[in-house]
């Protein structure tokens, strides 16, 4: 009996160890081995990376590329068009070193929260709604679709899983915005290589029961727009952080709003605790604090976004 108890204790302590790391460790995730704690992260695969900053002359571009560029999935229609016109299509914006070049953008705030998309699932049709960004602080929007009214709100109807605003159906409501860096959390999260970063974010959204269209849009957009750095540390921001920095009021009864924004910090080399970092490596489990998706409401709003720091 004692042996069984000891065995359970050992197993559970291994589980705790894997979920939260001790000081001077980095929380790492891969689909094969799950969560683990490391002093130095090592990638299982040799990522081939070339950044625009590494290239001085555009004529060197082809000579520096690997001999074969292989994409596992076909690009969305807009990506192949965008490639023809824009050299930085595969970056989330104008890029410099390891983040957004903020000098090209209006407003303030180091965190560029890009493409938070808001989806809805409802049992109702023709249900009137108002969605208000009612912050007392100055808001630093970069883009919205559709445009907001003078009260920073969207008004219209919900038809099951679509928004109808001024007679036009939207699959999702969209905005880009800047937030102050100190309003985000940098303790919880994990590090992974680029491909696994996307997989983990999708897994996280899926576990929070985001609708299929939201997962599909996420994968389509971010598989193109996350730069080809070999490693990323992910710092998920959920309702706790987002409701404080960008409070929202939705005037629909029996509703809930699940929010998720992944702050990504790229790394050129394996994250190593011995190297000084501006943002500390994540040590604690983020899933412990994410919003619960167990209780279903008549109308459910869900938002995802990815953020990068401005330089």
């Amino acid at each position: 009996m004692r042996l069984i108890f000891l065995f359970i204790l050992v197993i559970s302590s291994v589980e705790i160890f894997a979920k939260n790391c001790s000081v001077n460790q980095i929380r790492v995730w891969s689909p094969e081995s799950g969560y683990s704690c490391h002093i130095k992260m090592q990638s299982s695969q040799g990522d081939c990376v070339l950044l625009p900053s590494d290239l001085k002359d555009p004529s060197e571009w082809l000579s520096n590329f690997p001999s074969a560029v292989f994409r596992t999935k076909p690009q969305p229609w807009w990506a192949s068009q965008g490639d023809l016109h824009y050299p930085n299509l595969h970056f989330p914006g104008v890029w410099q070193n390891r983040g957004i070049n903020a000098s090209y953008y209006t407003g303030n705030g180091e965190v560029h929260a890009l493409k938070p998309n808001i989806y809805v699932e409802s049992i109702h049709k023709n249900k009137k709604f108002t969605f208000v960004f009612d912050s007392k602080e100055e808001l630093n929007f970069l883009a919205t679709t559709p445009y907001l009214d003078e009260k920073n709100s969207w008004k219209g109807k919900i038809n099951n899983d679509k928004f109808e605003i001024e007679g036009i159906n939207y699959d999702y409501l969209f905005y880009d915005i800047r937030f102050p860096k100190d309003k985000m959390q940098y303790e919880r999260g994990l590090c992974a290589n680029r491909e696994e970063t996307i997989k983990w974010m999708l897994k996280d959204l899926s576990e929070m029961k985001y609708p299929a269209i939201a997962l599909q849009d996420f994968e389509e957009h971010w598989s193109v727009k996350i730069p080809d750095f070999p490693f990323y540390c992910i710092y998920p921001q959920y309702n706790k952080q987002l409701d404080e920095v960008l409070p929202v009021t939705i005037n629909v009864p029996q509703t809930t709003f699940v929010r998720s924004l992944y702050v990504l910090i790229p790394h050129r080399t394996e994250p190593d605790v011995d190297e000084p970092q501006e943002i500390p490596f994540p040590m604690l489990d983020s899933t412990e604090v994410r919003p619960s998706a167990l209780i279903k409401h008549e109308t459910m709003f869900k938002e995802w976004g990815v953020a990068f720091l401005g330089q």
Binding site: G82, H85, P87
Partner: peptide, 30 residues
């Protein structure tokens, strides 16, 4: 697509892009 107004491809940096349904509206803060 919102980019810098440059003729040269390498200078035509993309600032942001947004998908809009036909008839839909948008705002870019620039």
């Amino acid at each position: 697509w919102v980019s810098l107004d440059k003729d040269q491809y390498k200078e035509r940096l993309l600032l942001m892009h947004s998908e809009v349904p036909v008839g839909g509206t948008f705002q870019f803060y620039l």
